[in-house]
Design a protein around this nucleic acid. Structure first.
Lengths: 180, 180
DNA sequence: GCTAAAATCACCCAAAAGCATGACGACAAA
DNA sequence: TTTGTCGTCATGCTTTTGGGTGATTTTAGC
């Protein structure tokens, strides 16, 4: 479970302009393999069910039970697959709520700077959330990862930025053009 | 399983002046309803299958066929559900909070806002230094006061801003036009 | 398929930050 | 003079952050 769903959220600024620069990942050919695995698992499952039925399980209404089992398992698998399939999709939700003035120019991500610093997309994402004033815990909850992971990303990002504190990191990020 | 996809993408708008009114949304009841519908459909499906079995379909290996049917349908439904779940919803209502005369270029202090919040000059000074990424100790050294004093100013400023963290205070300060 | 990079998570520990409370002096307004 | 605000400082306590280390799992690219 990765969490690439990092579109525009309710805390977004008016002029949010997302750079679809690098996060562009297309549905991999792995997906097809997943479907195949799904089918295979289904077959095996059915076989196991049949086998167990003739072996020791001769329950009344076994059909319903089996159907329910199959349904549950496949629904879960389907959900997982659905998430997996749609995960890389970049959902750019622009929400232009312009205010008088206040337009220091559309923020353009300084990709070269990012590359030069070796900051990964995930790290940038964490930095951005830090800049919005979220705590590590909140970031972890929002991204569906553990707080430890957030801390790790923080540390790496701070290292790469040469910052010692998150406020400093934010300030530097803005100066370097990697944060709006 | 909701609410994560609203983080910060690479490239956020910067002038976001949105109050974090209800950033925290739980798993929507829609999802639960979907699951319920899923279960309902499953039951109906099974019932239909049973009925049809006793009616006119007495095929060999009907179990496998039914299981496969159930599997396919539920997998499809699951995929659909997964996609639906991961798709960010636009239930965001942006509330505009004044901010007049926020000159784009040269920063102009929003004195009315300051007065409205009751932020004293000293507190603003501390906020400004916080925004520059300084620690309390560094601020104390720079202003020739004790660290405790800085903490006190911080606390008061945070209170008045409604912030819980210094990063949040910085963000809010920028939104409110009291910080460059 | 293999490898390197990225992302994830855990644990420990120290430092920093934040919260609550109380207190004191300066100074301006009532 | 009294009152209220502001700036200053302290103490005790909890939470948050940051640093270090090591490990596993995905992912991407060859």
């Amino acid at each position: 479970m990765r969490a690439a769903w990092c579109g525009a959220g309710p805390g977004m600024g008016q002029g949010s302009r997302i750079q679809p620069t690098d996060m562009k990942r297309k549905v991999s050919s792995h997906a097809i393999r997943h479907v195949l695995i799904l089918g295979l698992v289904g077959g095996v499952l059915i076989a196991i069910l049949r086998w167990s039925e003739y072996r020791f399980l001769v329950i009344e209404h076994s059909f319903e039970i089996y159907a329910a089992l199959v349904a549950i398992i496949f629904a879960a698998f389907g959900i997982w697959l659905g998430i997996r399939l749609t995960k890389p999709r970049e959902t750019i939700v622009l929400r232009e709520v312009l205010v008088p003035a206040d337009a220091p120019g559309p923020f353009t991500l300084n990709q070269p700077q990012l590359d030069a610093l070796g900051i990964t997309p995930r790290e940038l994402e964490i930095l951005s959330l830090i800049a919005q004033g979220l705590s590590n815990r909140e970031i972890a909850e929002r991204l569906f990862v553990s707080e430890n992971t957030v801390k790790t990303h923080c540390s790496r990002a701070f290292d790469k930025l040469g910052a010692r504190r998150r406020t400093q990191a934010v300030q530097m990020g803005k100066e370097l053009g990697i944060l709006p």
